Simulated assay, not measured.
Amino acid sequence: MDLLGGAVIDSLLSRGARVRGLVRDLGSDRAQSLAGRGVELVRIDVSDAASLPAALQGADAFFFMTTLEGDTHDVDGETRQGIALIDAAVAAAVPNVVFSSAGGADRDSGVPLFESKRHLEERLEKSGLRVTLVRPVVYMDHLPLLGPSVEHGEVVLRLPLPDHIPLQLITIRDIGQISASFLLGTAEAPAGSIEIAGDQRTGGQIAAAFGERAGLPARYEALPLQAFDDNPHLQAMFRWLQETPAFQADIEAVKVIEPTVWDLPAWVRSSGWAVPTPGQ
């Protein structure tokens, strides 16, 4: 169970819903924690497609996403995961399916991770299922993996993005909240899909939000795309982000569905983010 799946479960449980969690290891600490909260656990193996429909039998709604595993360049493997889960939902005749895709997946981004999700979107659209496509932008929760650092008493953030180009952001918490609303039928996406963001900030404004939390001055430095030569997926995404406009979420429309959606300062305050050790 990944962080996003956990966020969806948290939101569903907070609303009194009965939840079935599909997990790989029934004995894991995370699985046992879910069981202790009343979640019905079912072990699945996505590579065994024939076994999946039984895990979805009788479900009123199904949320899923796909992830890279093992070989982090194996986009085809991620697609196979999604196909197996979609086919299982069809076989089990699940009445309501919510798929967490990616912002821009419907706009010929050329980003392999997004193109993979678009392939799954198209399969869902042809499946005959009632489907909602949730397209999140960049996760705020991933920003600490990209920085910032503290150098000489100053918060420094470096990304391969010119400072005049704003970056749309969303929290995992809010993806979970919005997805839960679609699963429970308390909200609907226009035409069955929605790109979602909670904030939009330039690199300098992102650095400033972390600096304010740390009580330190902040600086942003735009990097060349070559800085991500060792990560072709991120490099492809930032290349696309430089082609303005890339992400196109209507934040006010998102707030109609989830009025409590967090902006970046709210996430920084609530996430437990701490000032990194200087030089790291």
Rank of each mutant, 00 (worst) to 15 (best):
A102W: 01
D174Y: 06
D230G: 09
G38N: 05
V94Q: 03
A88Q: 04
R219N: 07
F99M: 06
V111H: 04
A93I: 02
P276I: 05
L41A: 11
R135C: 02
S14Q: 08
P245W: 03
R118V: 10
P148V: 13
L241S: 10
P224F: 03
I165F: 06
P112C: 14
P95D: 10
K117S: 03
L12M: 06
A187R: 08
R269S: 15
H233S: 15
D106Y: 09
D76M: 06
E252T: 03
A187M: 01
V155R: 02
P190C: 03
H73Q: 15
M65C: 02
M1L: 14
V19S: 03
R24H: 12
A102D: 05
M1Q: 10
T277I: 15
T171G: 04
D199T: 06
P278Y: 02
V268Y: 04
S193G: 13
I178A: 14
S181W: 01
A93M: 04
G103S: 04
L223D: 00
I165T: 12
V75K: 07
R118T: 09
V138Y: 10
D87I: 04
R20H: 09
D2E: 15
V42T: 13
G38D: 05
A222V: 05
P162K: 11
F62R: 00
I175G: 11
